[in-house]
Amino acid sequence: MNCPFCSIVEGEEDAVILDETEDTIAFAPLDSVSEGHLLVVPKAHYEHLFDVPEPILHAVTERARTIAERLRAHGFDGVNLLHASGEAAQQSVPHFHLHIAPRRHDDELDLWPASTHDESDFDRTYETVRTAIENGDAL
């Protein structure tokens, strides 16, 4: 397997590592979208959200929250947590990760671009999702 995040975890690839726990590691991405942008990843390799065991998902999200709280306490006004699972969602590295993009009121970033999709099927889609959740079915 040729995973750049696993290489960082193993110390084979250089990275600016900002935080590390037993199950997670946080480091600066190659291309930052905001001041202080970083990634939180599980040390074990899981390709996307659908593969991550619940305890590891919990460890990653808890660490992301802890880091976000520290960022807010040190001058940032908020954060965006960003994630993509799967090619259709534009996942660029096949290793589960969360982006933490620290934000300031005056940073003028738009990490929520306007959508151009047709909303005509929203009601039907939401009803399908609601029913699947209530029945415990796969979508």
Rank of each mutant, 00 (worst) to 15 (best):
M1L: 10
M1D: 11
P4K: 09
C6V: 07
S7E: 15
I8R: 05
V9L: 03
E10M: 10
E13M: 13
D14K: 14
D14Y: 02
A15K: 03
V16F: 06
L18C: 09
D19T: 01
D19I: 02
E20T: 09
E20F: 02
T21N: 08
T21E: 11
D23K: 15
I25G: 04
F27Y: 05
F27E: 06
A28S: 12
P29G: 04
L30T: 04
D31F: 08
S32A: 15
V33P: 00
S34M: 05
E35H: 04
L38C: 10
L39Y: 04
L39R: 07
V40I: 13
V40A: 07
P42R: 10
P42W: 01
P42K: 04
K43F: 03
A44H: 07
H45F: 03
Y46F: 15
Y46M: 03
Y46R: 10
E47K: 15
H48D: 15
F50E: 13
D51C: 10
E54K: 14
E54Y: 08
L57S: 07
H58S: 15
H58C: 10
A59F: 06
A59D: 12
V60K: 06
T61G: 06
T61V: 14
R63W: 01
A64V: 06
R65L: 12
R65Q: 13
T66V: 09
E69G: 12
E69D: 13
R70Q: 12
L71I: 08
L71R: 09
R72K: 15
F76N: 07
D77T: 10
D77Y: 07
D77I: 03
G78C: 04
G78Y: 03
L81A: 09
L82V: 11
L82D: 01
L82T: 05
H83I: 10
A84V: 01
E87R: 14
A88E: 10
Q90R: 15
Q90N: 14
Q90F: 12
V93E: 06
H95V: 09
F96C: 08
H97C: 05
H97N: 07
H99E: 01
H99F: 02
H99D: 00
H99G: 02
A101I: 12
P102A: 05
R103P: 03
R103N: 07
R104L: 08
R104F: 07
R104H: 11
D106E: 10
D106N: 13
E108V: 06
E108L: 10
L109W: 01
D110K: 03
D110Y: 00
P113V: 08
S115A: 14
T116M: 09
D118W: 09
S120R: 15
S120K: 14
D121Y: 04
D121C: 08
F122V: 15
F122W: 13
D123N: 11
R124V: 10
T125L: 15
E127R: 14
E127H: 10
R130P: 02
E134C: 09
E134Y: 01
N135W: 00
G136S: 03
D137S: 13
D137V: 02
D137N: 12
L139V: 11
